[in-house]
């Protein structure tokens, strides 16, 4: 791949120190995102998807949450490479990245916008903060963005409050706000989960159009594999804070290697498929009481003795496909040096 790298996450470990013990919300995660591509991040609730994105935005809840030493998040969008982990969350440098270079769209469009300010003023706030333009110019930019995300009558809508818009319109407003400063990297944390399917399809189309226009790198977090199939170029499957499989979207759907990925795929319904759905047995283990060996072993139908003893390393199936599973060693995958 000769595309320009935007973000590189290495050995990211985000731990929470609670009364019950240390919660390893993100446990040794490595990945990269390139310009103009969409990386889908899939997994069940509590697998560390959202905490990975919060770590990148440097918004991990303090004081309980902490990035462990050795974690590195490098941003390549500027002339100089910035290591986000070295910046204080409230520092000027970090704030000039947030919302400007990297933006975020949240799950709940109902609650993610401040209810007492108009959507226009919330967009204008971000634009003025990062671009240093006058009020009037910022308003023009806001109206233009609202038009771009397909909200009708933008000159009127700019002065409306979030509660005057429907859920889909609010999410569009949220996207307008996130993209108002032309970020090179966008995190979308389950942006369509709270919306109904027709609106979901529109929002996904919109995000793809805007991605083509601005060449934005998108990290798309969801638990919905259909959405992944729709929007992602590459997919990263997470389980209990670890990346268990990374591959291109086609590989994930047609040649999944990890039993967890296979389990996820066989538990989604397909039209015309009369076979019964197969759910993954059991539940995600408590992050403070993780089993020995592979964290998925207790739920895995193919678990071997080694799985209950040793955490598998990451094996490369091919250039774009890597799996963290002992089965792949048997199948002849080469061990990843890192």
């Amino acid at each position: 791949m000769d595309k320009k790298k935007i973000l590189e996450v290495k050995n990211l470990r985000t731990y929470f120190y609670t009364h019950e013990g240390v919660v390893k919300a993100v446990d040794d995660v490595d990945f990269e995102i390139y310009e103009g591509e969409t990386l889908g991040v899939v997994g069940e609730s509590g697998c560390g998807k959202s905490m990975t994105s919060k770590s990148i935005m440097n918004l991990v809840p303090k004081p309980k949450g902490k990035l462990e030493p050795g974690s590195s998040i490098k941003y390549y969008g500027l002339d100089e490479v910035v290591d986000i982990t070295s910046l204080s969350p409230r520092s000027k440098e970090m704030r000039s990245l947030r919302g400007n270079e990297m933006a975020m769209i949240f799950q709940e469009p109902m609650t993610s916008l401040n209810p007492v300010y108009t959507i226009g003023s919330q967009i204008i706030e971000a634009v003025r903060l990062h671009q240093g333009v006058s009020k009037e110019e910022a308003r023009e930019i806001a109206i233009e963005m609202i038009r771009k995300v397909g909200i009708p009558a933008p000159e009127k809508r700019v002065d409306e409050y979030p509660f005057e818009l429907s859920g889909g319109m609010r999410q569009r407003a949220m996207i307008a706000m996130a993209l108002s400063c032309n970020p090179k990297f966008l995190i979308a944390d389950e942006p369509t989960t709270a919306l109904d399917v027709t609106v979901e399809a529109q929002i996904l189309d919109l995000m793809q159009d805007l991605q083509d226009e601005f060449n934005t790198a998108i990290m798309f977090i969801t638990h919905d594999l259909d959405v992944i199939g729709e929007i992602a170029d590459r997919v990263m499957v997470m389980y209990t804070g670890k990346v268990v499989e990374t591959a291109s979207v086609d590989e994930i759907f047609y040649n999944p290697k990890h039993p967890y990925t296979k389990g996820l795929l066989s538990s989604i319904p397909k039209i015309g498929n009369k076979e019964e759905l197969v759910p993954i047995e059991g539940t995600v283990p408590n992050l403070t009481e993780l089993p020995k060996g592979c964290y998925f072993a207790p739920r895995c139908p193919h678990a071997m003795d080694i799985c209950r003893e040793k955490m598998p390393p990451t094996f490369d199936i091919n250039e774009e496909h890597s799996v963290k599973c002992w089965l792949s060693e048997k199948e002849g995958g080469s061990m990843n040096e890192e």
């Binding site: 935005m57 919302g99 609650t111 401040n114 903060l129 706000m177």
Partner: peptide
């Protein structure tokens, strides 16, 4: 605790 606070922080606003 509400989500809009996170949004405001993610915009890069000062605390």
């Amino acid at each position: 605790r509400k989500a809009y606070v996170q949004t405001a922080r993610a915009k890069g606003l000062s605390e």
